[in-house]
Amino acid sequence: MLRTVSSHQELDLRGRTEMVFSIAVAASWPTASESLDFVLDDAPQHPTELVDARGTRLHTLIAGPGRLVVDYAATVEATPEPAPLSAIDRVEYLRPSRYCESDVLTPTARSLFPAQIGHELLQSVRDWVSQNIRYTPGVSMATDGAAHSLLTRRGVCRDYAHLTIAMLRAKDVPARYASVYAPGLSPMDFHAVAEAYVEGAWWIVDSTGLAPRQSLVRIATGRDAADVAFLTNHWADLFLQNLVITATADVLPNDDHRSPVQLP
């Protein structure tokens, strides 16, 4: 499957600031073509690439003040093999995290899913979150986690993923957060999905159902949104003035969100 993805950002930097971008496809994904350009007030900038233990590619840059334009584009032809679960992954992805308060939600998860295991549990959690949370842009804040989403019953893909992950961890299933490019997503944006480890492999759990899982391209992987934000900065303030994401595939699969699917 041929997938083409891009990201365009325009940032107003109010002073000299340190920025970390997570917008490039993960290191495990072979790209047929790729470009990444940073321009501050018409002057090209040169970021530093860092790759973390999960294959997330981070690009760091110190710049400003001024108008920063960031453009990324990639074409992906091949799909890599999924990575196995390591011993440290199992420990890390079973623990509560900032946005996935599985310890707080353990009584709820045990009550809602008392006997389900394996893929049946994944499907049950996915269906419950999908049916009980209303997709509502603009209602959740950057500091809201899974417990807040459970109470308000509203949110966006980030909130769906956090609640799904917290419920699964509360049922002793390793679960993690992935940011992705998502051909077929509407409205188009960076997308977030959960992944759960059962029966010897990682499986996508997308409780929004907004894009076919088979066409997703991994950007970053972590415990929750705190680990995979597309942009973080320190020192001076910055303001995101424009953000345009595109993601297309030459073949867009039909996905019933019931058959198991992996995200390499």
Rank of each mutant, 00 (worst) to 15 (best):
E199N: 07
F230H: 00
G66T: 09
A247G: 04
T60I: 11
W203R: 02
G15M: 11
T108V: 14
P47Q: 14
N132G: 03
D103Q: 15
I117W: 09
R134P: 11
A142W: 14
L36H: 13
S35M: 05
T143Y: 12
V39R: 03
A146D: 07
D144F: 02
P187R: 12
M188H: 14
V5F: 01
D103R: 14
P82V: 03
T232E: 03
L122G: 03
A196V: 05
V104N: 02
E10N: 08
L263S: 02
D127Y: 02
V156P: 12
D89C: 11
T221M: 07
H234N: 13
L94M: 11
L231P: 04
M141H: 13
L85D: 09
R3Y: 05
L151Y: 06
T248H: 01
S6M: 01
T246M: 03
H119L: 13
V244F: 14
L58R: 13
M1E: 11
R258A: 08
E101I: 01
I117N: 13
P174T: 06
P114Q: 07
G184E: 03
S97P: 07
Q116A: 14
V39H: 03
T143V: 01
R110T: 10
R54N: 08
D206L: 01
A211K: 03
F239Q: 10
E77S: 10
D237R: 15
Q131L: 14
S186G: 04
S86Q: 14
G66K: 15
